[in-house]
Structure formats: C-alpha cells, structure tokens
Design a protein around this nucleic acid. Structure first.
Ligand SMILES: [Mn+2]
Ligand SMILES: [Mn+2]
Ligand SMILES: [Zn+2]
Ligand SMILES: [Zn+2]
Lengths: 143, 143
DNA sequence: AATATTATTGCAACAAAGTTGCATTTTTGC
DNA sequence: GCAAAAATGCAACTTTGTTGCAATAATATT
C-alpha cells in the first residue's frame, strides 16, 4: 500500500526533515502489518546503531506530524503504527484496534462507517468529541 | 448505589478476606464517581498508614475477585473503579469509558444495549470476543 | 559549493510506575 | 484459642520513558 512512495518522499510530504533515523524507522513501520513497540523497532534496526532516545523522539515526531499514531497496551507501553491509506483520505480517528489475546499483536482495522457513528449514552451532560473502539479476540494468525 | 451494603459485606460477597487495607480502599472507591489512580487512593488514605505495595496488591485483589476493574490512561497508568450496579446483573464488559479531555477524569458509563452490539469489520478472520469503547470529550463538571 | 541557521542526535543522569522476595503479622475456620 | 493460609511492610529492583546539554547533521541562502 505504501509501495508507491519512498520513505524520503513520505517524510517530505509530512514536513519532516529527512534523517537516517527517520528513514530507517519509517521503513520498519512500512513493512509491518501490526503496531510496533519501541523495543520491536529498536531490535529491527540496531546494528545500524541508533540511540534509544533518538528512537523515542523519532516516533514522537511521526505522531506529531500526523504520519503515525500510538496505542496504549495493557502493560503500559506504547505501540506505533502508520496511519492506514484509507485514513489519510477520511478522518484519522475512525478505525478500531484489534488486540489479539493470544499473540498480543495489535492491528488497526477500518470500521464500517455506519457502525462507527456516535454511541448514545444514557447519562446526559457528556459531550463526546472522539472515540476509540478497542476489540479483543483472536487474530487470523492464531486460529 | 452501594449504600445498602457495607464494605465488609461486599468483601465477603466477593470472597475476599476482610482486612483493614481492603476496607479502607473499598470505602474510598465507593465514594468516587470516577475511576481513581493508585496515587489518588493513596493520598486519600494515608495518615491511616498503608504501604504503597499493599495498595497495589489490594487493588489487584479487587480486580481478580471481579469487584473492580482497571482502565489504562494515556500516560500509561491504571485507574480503578468498582463495577457499576447495573454491570453486576448484566455482563461486566458492556460499558463505555468516558475520558474528559479537560479534567482528565475517567467515568464508567452504561451503553445503550443496541449500540454496544458487535461492530462489523471489513477484514475477515478476526474473531471478536470482547470490546472496550472509549469516548473522549467534555464531562458535566467541565462545561 | 561554502555558510549560516536550525533541528536532530547521542550520552548520561533521572523520574515514575509498578514488581519481587522475604520475614512478620493478620485473618479465619475449627 | 490454635494452626494454616493469606495479607502486609520494607527494601531492592525492573521497565519504560524523559530531560539537559554539547556535538552533529540537514536545509535554505548566498
Ligand atoms: Mn491504529
Ligand atoms: Mn469502567
Ligand atoms: Zn494473534
Ligand atoms: Zn471534566
């Protein structure tokens, strides 16, 4: 899905300076179908010597630029994923996170638009501005 | 809503041994309309001298017993809340978490049953077993 | 192509949240 | 009350992520 554009082109498009660290990290994220932790990315990159702090800052820069987003896991860490192509056209918020209870991978999945509509709440006085839908179950790899 | 039963009675009901720490922590949780952090609870209890590790373990015991549940926050900490009365009758999973973007409080809110039904996903091969719906916006206290 | 400006990087030290091991104290069924 | 099992307190530890700062690299301009 990202095959049309190179990491460099994408970084330019998102207004980010093109650095070694960013090219490498973006490349890793582009290969992955699932959201990755700092540790996941770090181990796929090192050998190419990259400081852990730089990786944290690289990921932050991607999130701030709107190129990636992050998901909190049950064990208080962050996973990062690029926005899906569909999300670039539509709103960025409207997708679900699927957490596999077997392998713990987290996938970003598009929602059927109608189902993603605002959910009515019994109580009043709560103004809903955005939402996150998180699904738990078993992923295709695990059954 | 919990006024009918005392902390002691509730602890018995959930098969937990009645200890000072548990009675105090349960009391604090019963007073609160929102989910509380370890720090929130700790500061409301101390003076009554209670070790931080004991509080962690107390909260875990509540979650394991099914008396309380925990919600991960954006800053990678846990908040704890008692299950709502409605949830005790119905399933425990079916409620939404409302995160106020102003005061950062997290409320447990019941969902309209129809809206909580399974959301269809475009991809196939993902078996959904449970879900969490997290809403962001402004709470009644903040507007 | 060299220079100036500004952002990024690496390193070391630090912070916050939560966990573990173990000896001591409480709880509870009898 | 007594014994068995569970809960507690304390200290040390782990994991994840952050901060300050000097050195380096990226870009726009000449
Ligand atoms: Mn996602
Ligand atoms: Mn809740
Ligand atoms: Zn899986
Ligand atoms: Zn609020």
């Amino acid at each position: 899905m990202y095959s049309k554009k190179s990491p460099k082109e994408i970084l330019h498009q998102y207004g980010l300076k093109v650095t070694n660290a960013r090219v490498k990290v973006l490349h890793v994220l582009m290969q992955s179908q699932v959201a990755l932790s700092h540790g996941d990315i770090f181990s796929r990159i090192n050998g190419n010597g990259l400081d852990k702090v730089t990786l944290y800052r690289t990921l932050s820069s991607f999130v701030n630029a709107g190129l990636a987003h992050k998901v909190a896991t049950e064990d208080r860490t962050w996973l990062h994923a690029l926005h899906m192509p569909e999300e670039r056209d539509e709103g960025v918020e409207d997708h679900a996170h699927f957490v596999c209870d077997t392998c713990e991978r987290i996938y970003c999945l598009p929602l059927v638009t109608e189902a993603a509509a605002a959910v009515p709440i019994k109580e009043s006085g709560f103004q809903v501005k955005s939402h996150e839908y998180r699904l738990h179950g078993t992923c295709p790899e695990c059954h």
